[in-house]
Amino acid sequence: MEQGLVLAALLFAMGLVGVMVRRNIILILMSVEVMLNACGLAFIVAGARWGQADGQIMFMLILAIAAAEVSVGLGLLLQVHRRLGSIDIDKTSRLKG
């Protein structure tokens, strides 16, 4: 099942690139979703290799986390948009220094 894990690693790395590069908050959150999905893939593949249900259970928990995180994250995005008038992540840099 090595290819599955390699795929997961590749997807994870790509998601990380997306987080670092993009300035639109929505797209950053989207890149985080890519990374979470890659983790889920890794768990499922590993669970299948050992023949245990634990991998799928972990995947379900990751799903729950992703759902909660996305809802709160998008709520924050709405607030940022309302207060700063923009969805550029670089505008939220008042905690500098």
Partner: peptide, 12 residues
């Protein structure tokens, strides 16, 4: 403190 730019992408 110059490394604390406040930019999320820099931290990432």
């Amino acid at each position: 403190s110059f490394s604390q730019t406040g930019h999320l992408r820099w931290y990432a």
